[in-house]
Design a protein around this nucleic acid. Structure first.
Length: 649
DNA sequence: GGTCGGGGCGCG
DNA sequence: AAAGCGCGCCCCGACC
């Protein structure tokens, strides 16, 4: 695999993905990529996986504008094909096509894509209905080769989880076995390139064969660009003040314990209080409980339940919500213990040592890691950082954080998806819930509960009543999620607005529900539960996954917008062709540093803040237009320019 | 000694 | 207030 100074093969591709010439061997692939980018001809790089190779390019200070990520594309396309087999219900069926993807690519391949030329993905090429088995096998082998390549390319980290495109544990194990049995760690460049070209061309055909090729192509393009953003964000890192984090911990927990594994003072104190509360109440209890009860470990739900039971309090669980209503002296210290112990174990000093270096927190993002298309993260709990710790996220001197989150994104997405006139009118407003509240005698709280219940499938308590009101007032919106729920209950598959498919039900689920559908069979209550659970999943999927579509398109649009903001360079300039950045040199450009489902953070020099805010706003508008086409629904952002993340709203 | 599922809780 | 959806990560305890 290429690294700085390592050779590689490059081949230009046409719009249909076929080679536009012979492969060219370059002595330094990274340098070759840099040169192509500097020519500014709109190259779209085609590679097995951005996660595998792009970090290396970034370490050599090479950025690319566009790519086609074969691994991510394969996951999307294979998911779509599995959905077709299960009977898909298109989320946006019947709507006009939205985005388009243009240009050919260059394979590491690379391609000098015709910017503005044709839409290879929109062209109505013949579908892939005639796929004979031999070809399938060849493409399977090619894909496998690319996975091996990607894993090898990931480099120092060693074995990387293969992005299983439709593969489960078994596939991965088989692949691993073959690798051990002598499959080359570094496949021959020529073989890799051929595999890449074949698979890519096949993917273009399969995208074009989609019911909505424009939208599906946009999804693949956005996912690929998302992988670029993810690698760049890991490289940039979230500015993190270890001293502020440490001060916060010390204030809440007491000083850092000298010995690792030791409880901080405040946590030890609370544990003792919990133990004492149970011991004292037990002392006066029935016979056989003369005081000396074993101290309760507050970290053990089983022990806590037992301790409460010994005092005559039977609990369904030790969850916060349950404990809050319990009248017992142990409750107060226990709740505080839980809060602080979690802070200590999940984001305490150990976390700080492991994850913050040189004033940056650098988590790894997993693009497409969630079935809905949301990103996941690996290590560091990047997407679960307690709001409390936002205090430690502070811009560098002279820099600011531009924090933007989409307001009430999911209900707005539903409004746009469903084409509900009344609901869309409500979604023109800045506060959607306040508008919906007119259906609930102005009670905003009820409006919110009704909306969330509609999107999540809640039906308990007052939710049922509120839902009835919602259904009457916004029939199309309610009908939309209910159709999705019905599809799920019947074992069908749903898709997001851009065509991301939810997974089909498991064999287990099918067996369970089919059995129950047999009129002669005993009614199994498990089957009903499983069916309703899948209904809630698909109901939520159409909304959450379409929101993820919007957010990722917004993110990559923002990336493009930010790249046009040119600041001065500070310090020594990067020499042309050199991988080295002089010490102290610092690019004065805005960095995307965080993305959490519906929220982005840009770290930039203070003088660029206005331009960044404008770019954010344009990105949201562009995402709305590309994903939903013409719609009356507004997608407003809350944007703040701050020194510290905690100060953003 | 290690692995793995469940409980619990942080985020959206 | 939580519920209903999606995650990652910690701890515990059962198990190998």
């Amino acid at each position: 695999m290429p690294g700085p100074g390592q050779s590689g093969l490059v081949c230009e591709l046409g719009d249909d993905g076929s080679p536009a010439g012979d492969p060219v061997e370059v002595s330094d692939l990274v340098a070759a990529v840099r040169e192509h980018e500097e020519e500014g001809v709109g190259t779209r790089w085609v590679w097995p996986s951005a996660a595998g190779i792009y970090p290396r390019l970034l370490r050599a200070d090479v950025r690319v504008a566009r790519c086609h990520d074969v691994a991510l594309a394969e996951a999307l396309i294979a998911g779509r094909d599995a959905a077709l087999g299960a009977g898909a219900l298109g989320a946006g069926a019947g709507r006009a096509g939205a985005g388009s993807v243009r240009g050919g690519g260059i394979g590491v391949g690379l391609g000098r894509g015709g910017v503005g030329g044709g839409g290879a993905l929109d062209a109505g090429q013949a579908g892939c209905d005639r796929l004979d088995r031999a070809r399938d096998d060849r493409l399977e082998r090619a894909l496998e080769l690319l996975r091996v390549w990607s894993a090898a390319a990931a480099g120092e980290a060693g074995a990387v989880a293969f992005t299983a495109a439709g593969g489960g544990q078994a596939d991965q194990q088989a692949l691993f076995d073959r690798a051990l049995a002598g499959a080359p760690d570094h496949p021959k460049p020529r073989d890799t390139l051929n595999a890449l070209i074949d698979v890519h061309a096949d993917q273009l055909r399969r995208i074009a064969a989609d019911e909505h090729p424009g939208r599906f192509g946009l999804l693949v393009a956005a996912e690929s660009a998302g992988a670029l953003v993810a690698a760049e964000m890991t490289m940039a890192g979230v500015p993190w003040r270890a001293d502020a984090h440490d001060a916060l911990l010390t204030e809440m927990l007491g000083p850092r314990p000298a010995m690792p594994g030791q409880r901080p003072a405040r946590i030890a104190e609370l544990a003792a209080q919990v133990a004492a509360a149970f011991a004292s109440s037990g002392a006066g209890g029935g016979p056989g409980h003369r005081g000396g009860r074993r101290p309760v470990n507050p970290d053990s739900p089983a022990q806590v339940l037992q301790a409460f039971a010994a005092d005559g309090i039977r609990l369904s669980s030790t969850r916060l919500a349950v404990l809050r209503d319990v009248d017992h002296p142990a409750v107060e210290p226990l709740l505080e213990y839980k809060e602080l112990a979690r802070l200590h174990s999940a984001f305490g000093w150990v976390w700080l040592d492991a994850w913050v270096r040189d004033g940056r927190f650098r988590p790894e993002y997993v693009v497409g890691g969630v079935v809905s298309g949301r990103w996941a993260s690996r290590g560091g709990g990047a997407l679960q950082i307690p709001r409390l710790l936002r205090r430690a996220v502070v811009a560098d001197p002279g820099w600011v954080l531009v924090v933007a989150d989409a307001a009430q994104l999911e209900p707005r997405v539903l409004a746009a998806l469903a084409g509900d006139r009344a609901f869309a009118a409500a979604a023109q407003a800045g506060d959607l819930y306040a508008e919906v509240a007119t259906a609930f005698a102005g009670d905003r709280r009820k409006a919110k509960i009704a909306m969330l219940s509609a999107m999540y499938g809640g039906a308990g308590g007052e939710a049922g009543q509120l839902l009835a009101v919602l259904r009457q007032r916004f029939p199309a919106a309610a009908g939309y999620v209910e159709a999705a729920a019905r599809a799920g209950e019947e074992g069908r598959v749903v898709r997001s607005v851009l065509g991301r498919a939810c997974p089909p039900p498991s064999a287990n689920w099918r067996a369970l529900t089919e059995e129950a559908a047999d009129p002669d069979a005993e009614r199994d209550p498990q089957a009903g539960r499983a069916s309703r659970a899948r209904g809630r999943f698909t109901r939520n999927f159409v909304v959450q996954a379409s929101a993820a579509d919007w957010a990722q398109v917004m993110l990559v649009s923002l990336r493009a917008g930010l790249s046009k903001i040119n600041g001065r360079n500070e310090g020594v300039q990067v020499l042309s062709g050199s991988a080295a950045v002089a010490p102290g040199a610092r690019r004065q450009r805005p960095d995307l540093v965080f993305f959490q489902h519906d929220e982005v953070i840009v770290h930039c020099p203070r003088e660029q803040a206005d331009a960044v805010v404008a770019a954010v706003s344009r990105a949201a508008e562009e995402a709305s237009r590309l994903v939903f086409g013409p719609t009356r629904v507004a997608f407003p952002l809350n944007t703040a320019v701050v020194d510290c993340y905690a100060d953003a709203k």
